[in-house]
Amino acid sequence: MASLRTRGYSHYRWRTGQIAWLLHRLTGLALVLYVSMHIWVVSTLQLGEGTFEATMAVVQAPLFRFLEVGLLFCVIYHALNGLRLIAIDFFGATEKHVPLFWAVIILGGAAWIWGGSTMIGHALHQLEHGQAFFPF
């Protein structure tokens, strides 16, 4: 009988608010994983210039620059939707939550395209100069 309780996720029609919430949750979890790795990587600073530069050479390779475009999506979406949530929590914006979501997508999309293309530009620059795509 317990399984019959969960028909909501599979059968209820997904609307803007629920999609926004799911994406917020997924990007948040992705960011937790990323931040954990990032703090560990930056901590290699302590091990001296050599180790740091070696680590940086790996994580600034073209492969990672492309992965960072995905990371940028997570950061931008989570931040902007977070602002939308604050508008709902503190500024009574519930009735406008759908247009606000589109504002998040449009502004965020523009920022993502601008930032992402800069990153891809760096990657292509690196590839032109003979750097390997996979740094391993």
Binding site: R15, T16, W21, I88, F90, E95, H97
Partner: peptide
């Protein structure tokens, strides 16, 4: 409550639980 707003769209009497829950939280 994470402001999913399904309740606001489901209410047949066009009430806004999300909004009132926010006010109650504050």
């Amino acid at each position: 409550c994470h402001k999913i707003t399904n309740c606001y769209h489901a209410c047949p009497k066009h009430l806004n639980p999300t909004e009132q829950i926010s006010k109650l939280q504050r």
